[in-house]
Computed example of a mutant assay.
Amino acid sequence: MDATTFMRSLFALRRYFPQAAALGAQQAGFDALERLGIDAERRMLCATGGINTHRGAVFTLGLLCASAGAVLAQGGPCTPAALRAALRRGWGAALQARCARPRSSAGQRVTQQHGLRGASEEAALGLPVLFDVAVPALRRALAHGLAVRAARLEALFHVIAVLDDTNLAHRGGLPGLRYAQGAAANFLAAGGAAQGDASAQAEAIHREFVARRLSPGGAADVLAAACWVQRVCTD
């Protein structure tokens, strides 16, 4: 995984998100959204030679785009609350049923093994970590005068501290997940991204993660979604 595979993946996915929004506007069922997402994931893997660069974005941002399509088609303002309500109303039951399917991916197996809340369950609940943690943290940091990059760093650590990140659990087991959550909580308790040496502190945590083969990919997906919400929502 490098910059080249990311760019190839982005080009492979460039039509997917507007298509998801269009399905949401049509109030399409979850099966149609899922087929669209599976096809997008196939194109991504073909473009990257089998490397998973954006699977989380295909799932989470796809659902958010569909929710935005549904909200706008009904003439409502695109607010975080409206997005969340549209997601749960339109596809919450189907997402909950998806949780009961046989566990095939590494992330799904980890959720079952450790009793964690996976992506499908998180989405079925209306993405609570996104809307209750990430978006408020990002907005709060920006309102307090942090630069965009620092505000995103603050939001990322808020997410790492609470998310059942299956990528962390897959790499380091439950101890790895808890270690990462604790490191993020300590960073925030010390002042977070408002610290004078916040970048150096974050870099030190990064080096510890690398040494332990820990990658908070799930938290990164939530941060990307929070940036999207911040950009497209009117309130």
Rank of each mutant, 00 (worst) to 15 (best):
G196W: 07
E41V: 03
G176M: 11
A183Y: 07
A97N: 06
A86L: 08
E34F: 15
L36H: 08
V159D: 06
F17V: 09
R178D: 08
M1D: 03
A202H: 09
P80R: 06
G92W: 12
E154R: 01
V129Q: 08
M1L: 05
S105H: 12
P175G: 10
P77F: 14
N167G: 13
A225D: 00
A134C: 08
A202C: 11
L125P: 00
R55P: 00
L83K: 09
G29T: 04
A20D: 05
R98F: 13
I38S: 07
M7C: 06
A155C: 09
Q19P: 01
A161N: 05
A189H: 04
R212V: 12
E203C: 15
A226F: 07
A86D: 03
C227P: 01
R101Q: 13
L125Q: 13
C99Q: 13
G50V: 03
F30T: 06
R55M: 10
R117Y: 05
D235G: 13
A86E: 02
D132P: 01
I205G: 06
Q74K: 08
R212C: 14
Q230P: 01
A28Y: 02
A155N: 01
A94Q: 10
L63G: 04
P136V: 06
A106N: 14
T234P: 02
A106V: 08
A21V: 03
Q27A: 15
G196K: 07
S67K: 05
L61R: 07
A100L: 15
A193N: 02
N167Y: 09
L83W: 06
H170K: 07
V232Q: 04
V71D: 08
A21H: 02
A73K: 09
I205M: 15
L63M: 15
A123W: 02
R103Y: 05
T53Q: 12
A211R: 13
D221I: 06
R14V: 06
A70R: 15
M1T: 04
A137L: 11
C65M: 07
S215M: 02
A202T: 12
P175C: 13
L138D: 00
R8W: 04
Q96K: 13
T4V: 15
L116C: 07
A219N: 07
G29Q: 10
F6G: 11
G62D: 01
L33C: 12
A161I: 05
R103S: 11
V229P: 00
L177A: 11
R101T: 06
G191R: 13
Q74F: 06
V148G: 00
